[in-house]
Simulated scan of single mutants.
Amino acid sequence: MFFHHLKNFSPYSGHIYDDMHVPFVQKKDGYLSKKDSRFDLMDRLGYFPFKELIRDDRAYFISDIDLYEFLNSDENTIDNYTAGYGEWNIAQKESFAECFFTGYNVGVIEFERNTGMAYHGYTIEQQTRYLHVFCLYCLDFLFFDGDLDKGLFYNLGYLQASFYRGFIEINNLKSALPDGSPGVRLHFESYNKVLAIAQAAKVRQEKTQKAAENNKPITPDTSNVKPPVSKQATAPMPTRIELLCNLDEIKSIWRVLTAPLNTKNGTEEAVFDAQQLAQFLGASFSSGAFPDALPFGKQTEIIKTSKGDMRNVLIALIFATYNINHEYNRGVTQMEYVGILKRHFSVFSGSGPVSIKNTLATFNPKGIKVIKNSQSVNPHVDEMLSILKKHKLLH
């Protein structure tokens, strides 16, 4: 147990407040509740499962999406919440948000205090296991179910900062272990450089060992020397894009292709069945955190669809995927997403990648309109639209 000094908090039972008599808010388009899925964050070590919120020139990193959306609400979005009592406005919301940020600022500073005296005497492996328990403990009480209590919000901020510090510390410790991970993917270029350095060091070590065994002189390592590239040459696009976002959301977005769509040319039959969709997603995307969720599969057949509306639908789907994943994986460009369209759908065969990229934002609304008009024949449209609304991609 941790946080023995924290006011309005029991290390055994959690937050202390009268939950039967405090005011609360509800979301108009969903439920605020305690979700077990929050513990899945610990399966994403090596990634950065936090949303960044800038306030008063300071960055706050928040793992609970419901909490993030509430804290980030403003005059334009405050009406998404209704109060279980009387009047509700932005000033009231800000009074609770201020308590959260105050608790967060204190929690960031007091991380070392909360890890305890024995922590610094542990080995790196022991520290990693200890912090894993610490983070799970934080997550046990880190959720927002709509209750409005200032002491509660202070403690939520404190716990969020503690979880953030613990999560980052685990990744930093793992990067110090032999053959450990390169740390959190905060900056993807830096991450790739670390991987390249580690790989080069491994190659040099293997050559040294082999030369010693054969009693031969060591040849210079030229594995990282790149041959000259002509101006006409272009680097090949990766065949799979890594998804660091919610995989279920991406699957739900593309699931609209497993049912009919209403187009100007009539009803377009389903592009995929469930198995074909899984094969397409596995050929196009990957997940380092959950590799079994997107098993790799080669897709050799080019998919044929009608032109016009269906082309716009495909653009809308890839554009949504790009925007959602870009929140977490900023190392992949739009051109690489366009590459998926070029490789898998014949309707894009006559267009160049740059041309397609430059028209994504233009044709995206047209594709969304086709999808909206298909609600009567496609049971997956509503779920897709709700996901787009959640990510502010649909108004």
Rank of each mutant, 00 (worst) to 15 (best):
H380F: 15
K392D: 07
I109T: 13
L156V: 10
P295Y: 01
K174A: 00
E269R: 10
H120K: 10
V354S: 11
I218G: 05
Y104M: 07
N8D: 13
A211G: 06
F48K: 03
I368W: 04
Q160E: 15
V354F: 03
D29C: 01
K369D: 07
N172P: 00
F163V: 12
Y85P: 00
L131H: 03
A91M: 13
G183E: 02
K226Q: 10
S63R: 08
P260Q: 06
G151N: 09
L388E: 07
W254A: 07
K390E: 08
P228F: 12
G166I: 14
N325L: 06
F9C: 05
D36N: 03
D309G: 15
I109L: 10
F363D: 04
K264M: 11
Y322D: 03
K27Y: 01
K389F: 06
V25A: 02
K390I: 05
L317E: 03
L314M: 09
L53W: 02
M1R: 04
D40F: 06
D64N: 15
H391C: 01
P238M: 08
A212Y: 12
Y12E: 10
L294V: 05
A274E: 07
L195N: 06
L156N: 08
N192Q: 14
V133D: 05
Y191A: 11
D309W: 09
P365I: 07
A320Y: 00
G84M: 08
V347N: 01
H391D: 00
G121V: 10
S33G: 01
T102R: 12
K202G: 04
K366C: 04
I302M: 09
Q275N: 11
I197C: 00
F101L: 05
F143K: 01
G14K: 05
L394G: 06
V313S: 11
R204D: 13
R311G: 06
Q199T: 09
A211P: 05
G183K: 04
E189F: 11
A212P: 00
A196Q: 09
D36K: 07
Q276R: 12
Y17R: 06
Y119L: 15
E213C: 09
D66N: 15
C99G: 00
D292T: 15
V256F: 08
N224P: 00
T234N: 05
A83C: 02
E112S: 10
V133I: 14
H380K: 14
S33L: 10
N105S: 12
G183L: 08
E268F: 06
L53C: 11
S355R: 15
H5K: 12
G86T: 02
S287Q: 04
V377W: 02
L41C: 11
P217M: 07
